[in-house]
């Protein structure tokens, strides 16, 4: 087979077949993610009201030209709050998956490079982290460092590290054993240089795939912590917190705040998991 025939499928995929690869569901998911991201980025421009200010007189209003989606128990504009809520939800989840991916990558590279004792020791440390359920670790972190988005974000990232590190370690180890990496080592390049220049680029796709897959979980876990009152604190708008705050209104017969915020979470998580599945599934499909 000539190099030409080998190269053709790859070129074709890069061209117009992204849509085919995504499928109708994937395209819908990508569009949703794009919209949510835009909403989060341009929330101040799109929002019709200040998300944190309302008057109790106007509470529990239904949708109107003034308040597109109505108001909450404090008379704040729900549409604007949902827009701003996208910020904490997306931003928090993004930080979690990036920190978890980065931390996992560092551990993986260190374990792969030094091998033996270091690898075994890191394995034990990860095992210990595996002994804690994700959410418990984050809750304990709040106990120690107090409530807040930053605290729970970092705590969640740490609780995700064992998972990313385990996947990345096996990839890094496989790469480490390849002839060209060994050759680079024999040329006298330092471990740091070889790891960063040769091994890291090869695990980047896995880092990104892992990030896409974990994004949905991170959104859910962060929202759950906010729901518990441990994460984002009022009056900041956050989808998880809005579900929680809407619970009392719901019992009084005004379910819209909880329902709207919850629906936002469900749609966003579903969209991210579809994309994550596509990214992860391509690998799985290639293996089968």
């Amino acid at each position: 087979m000539s190099a030409e025939t080998l190269a053709r499928p790859a070129a074709r995929r890069r061209g117009g077949d992204l849509a085919v690869w995504l499928g109708p569901l994937g395209i819908a998911a990508a569009v949703i993610i794009a919209l949510i991201t835009l909403a989060a980025l341009f929330a101040p421009l799109i929002a019709t009201h200040d998300p944190d200010i309302g008057s109790v007189v106007q509470r529990y209003q239904g949708p109107s030209a003034e308040h597109l989606l109505g108001t909450d128990q404090s008379g704040r504009d729900l549409f604007s709050r949902l827009l701003y809520g996208a910020r904490t939800s997306l931003f928090g989840a993004a930080v979690v998956v990036l920190l978890a991916g980065g931390g996992g990558a560092v551990l993986a590279l260190v374990a792969a490079w030094f091998g033996r004792n270091v690898d075994a020791f890191l394995g034990r440390v990860l095992d210990l982290l595996f002994a804690f359920p994700n959410l418990l670790l984050a809750i304990l972190a709040v106990a120690v460092f107090g409530t807040g988005l930053a605290q729970v974000t970092i705590a969640l990232a740490i609780s995700y590290v064992p998972y990313t590190a385990r996947v990345l370690r096996s990839v890094a180890l496989r790469e480490r054993r390849l002839a060209y990496v060994q050759a680079a080592e024999l040329q006298g390049l330092s471990g740091l240089v070889v790891s960063l220049r040769h091994i890291l680029p090869n695990i980047v796709p896995q880092i990104l795939t892992g990030a896409a897959i974990n994004f949905g979980y991170a959104m859910i876990d962060l929202a759950a912590l906010s729901f518990l009152g441990l994460g984002v604190q009022p009056p900041t708008a956050d989808w998880g917190l809005m579900v929680s705050q809407g619970k009392d209104s719901l019992l009084q017969g005004y379910p819209q705040q909880s329902m709207l915020a919850g629906t936002c979470i469900v749609v966003a998580v579903a969209a991210f998991s579809v994309i994550g599945e596509r990214l992860g599934g391509r690998k799985a499909g290639g293996r089968a």
Partner: peptide, 20 residues
């Protein structure tokens, strides 16, 4: 869809429909 529904939202949803 079920996977994307967080437990706390499921709780609120169920409460709204079946209790309230």
């Amino acid at each position: 869809v079920g996977f994307a529904i967080p437990t706390f939202f499921a709780a609120v949803l169920l409460m709204s429909v079946f209790s309230v």
